[in-house]
Design a binder for these strands. Structure first.
Lengths: 230, 230
DNA sequence: CGCGTCATTTCTGGATACAATCTACCCTCG
DNA sequence: CGAGGGTAGATTGTATCCAGAAATGACGCG
C-alpha cells in the first residue's frame, strides 16, 4: 500500500526473467522443503501479498505447479498441496529401477574426463552436505547426480520423465529420509557407480545403479509407511 | 487424509466449469488435429478475440498446454506449437514398449465381463472409425483402448506417464499415419490382445502388445522420417 | 551499398477492478 | 430440538487497463 505507484525495484529475491517464473520456483522449493505440507491450501491472495505482487503471477505459478503434480487445483476451490501415497512412491521407484539402468548403459560410453570430474565433484558435495546435515542441498545434489549419469543417453523424453520421477521421490526423501542412516550407503554406491563407469565396466555399473535405486526404495518406503501409519 | 479409493471415471464427462479449461481443451484438440501445425505462433490477443473472451483465460490455457508439452512459451516472445523430432518419437515408442506390456500383465488379471465388453466396443468403434476415415476419432479410440488395457494395473504414476506418451504419439499418428495401410493390422492386433487376455493367456497378450507397439513404431517412424526429409 | 542505431509498433507480462462461485453461519420453520 | 434455506463473507475466475520487452522499419553513417 505504501508504494503502489512507484516502480518497486523491491523484487529483491525475485530476480528471474518473469515474476511468474520466480514465484513458481519459490513455491516449488517451499513445497519440496516441506514448508508447505501436503493438504495445505494455498491462497492466492495471501501469497500475492507476501510476495508483494498481484494475484496473476501467483495463479500462473500455481498452474505450473499443478502441471508438475505438486498441487491440485479445483475450480473455485483453490489449490491444495498434494501428497504422495505409499503406492505412488513405490511406483515411482519401480519406474526408476526400470528406466535408469538402461539409460546409464547408453550414456556411460560417452563419458569423458570432464564428466568424471563433474560426477566426482557431485558425489563429494553430496558427502559434504550429508555430513553437514543439509537435507535440501542433499536432495538437489542427488537429483543432479542421477540426471548427470544419464546425460548422454540421447533419449529426450526418457530423461524428462526420469527428471520428474527424481523430483517427486526427492520430496518424501527430504522430509523423512534425513533421519535415516542409509544415506551413507547411497553415497558409497554413487562413488562406486562412477568408478565402474570409468573402469569401463558399464553393465556392472548399470546393475549397481538398479540395486542402488532398489535400496533407496526399500529404505524410503519403510520410513514412509511408518510415518503414514501415524 | 489418504486419497479417495474410488477411481476417477467421471473426469472426461465433466462439464467445463471455467472458461480457462474450455479454452485449454479447445486449443488442445486443434493442435492434435493439426489445425495448428508445429512452428505456428499462437497469439493471445487473436485467440482471445476469436473466443470472445479476455486474454487471461487464454494465457492460462497456454500455460497448461506448455505443461502438457504441446506448446513452448518463451518469455515475452509468445507461444509456439511444438513438434516432435524423429528421435523423440522413437524414444516415446521405446518407452511404451518398455512400460505397457508389464502393466498389461498386472491389469489383465482383474478384467471382468464388463471390461471385455468395453474393450470390444472400443475395438469395434476403432474399426468403424478406420473404415470411415475419421482420423481424429481413431486416435482418440486408440488412446482409450491402450489406457483401458492398463486400467487395473494399480500403478498411478506409470499410468499417467503412459497416458502422456499416448497423447504425444497420437499427434504424429493422426497427422501422418492416416494414409498408411498399417492401421488394419493394428486393429487386428487390438482384437487379438483382448482375446488372449480373455483366454487367460496373459503373458502372450503382453508379448503381443509389445510387438504391436513395435510395429506401430517402425511404421510411424518410417513415415515420419519421410515427411521430415522433404 | 552495407550496417549499426534508434524510434515506432506490436505483443506479452503484470496490476487493478469487477463478477461469479463457494463456504459458513444464522435464522426460520416443522 | 433438528433440518432446511437464505444471506453475508471470503475466495476464486475473468475483464479491462497499463507498463515493459522484443520485433520491425526507417534513418544516418561508414
Amino acid at each position: 500500500m505504501s508504494a503502489p505507484a512507484s516502480p518497486p525495484p523491491a523484487t529483491d529475491r525475485l530476480r528471474h526473467k518473469t515474476v511468474s517464473a520466480a514465484v513458481t520456483e519459490s513455491l516449488r522449493q517451499r513445497i519440496l522443503n516441506g514448508e508447505f505440507a501436503p493438504g495445505i491450501q494455498l491462497r492466492q491472495d495471501a501469497l500475492a501479498e507476501e510476495f508483494g505482487i498481484s494475484r496473476i503471477p501467483v495463479r500462473e505459478a500455481l498452474l505450473q505447479l499443478e502441471a508438475q503434480g505438486l498441487v491440485r487445483i479445483m475450480p473455485h476451490r483453490g489449490a491444495v498441496v498434494t501428497g504422495l501415497s505409499v503406492e505412488e512412491v513405490e511406483d515411482i521407484f519401480r519406474l526408476r529401477e526400470q528406466l535408469e539402468p538402461p539409460l546409464l548403459a547408453l550414456s556411460a560410453r560417452r563419458f569423458a574426463e570432464a564428466d568424471y570430474r563433474r560426477l566426482r565433484s557431485l558425489t563429494d558435495g553430496y558427502g559434504a552436505a550429508l555430513a553437514a546435515g543439509q537435507v535440501d542441498r542433499w536432495g538437489e545434489l542427488n537429483r543432479s547426480f542421477h540426471l548427470d549419469l544419464l546425460r548422454y543417453a540421447d533419449r529426450p523424453r526418457s530423461l524428462s520423465i526420469v527428471s520428474g520421477l527424481l523430483q517427486d521421490c526427492d520430496r518424501p526423501t527430504r522430509l523423512q529420509l534425513s533421519a535415516s542412516g542409509d544415506t551413507a550407503r547411497a553415497d558409497h554406491e554413487h562413488t562406486q557407480i562412477v568408478a565402474l563407469c570409468e573402469a569401463g565396466r558399464i553393465s556392472e555399473a548399470a546393475d549397481l545403479l538398479q540395486a542402488h535405486i532398489a535400496h533407496a526404495a526399500v529404505s524410503l518406503v519403510a520410513i514412509y509407511r511408518q510415518a503414514h501409519a501415524e
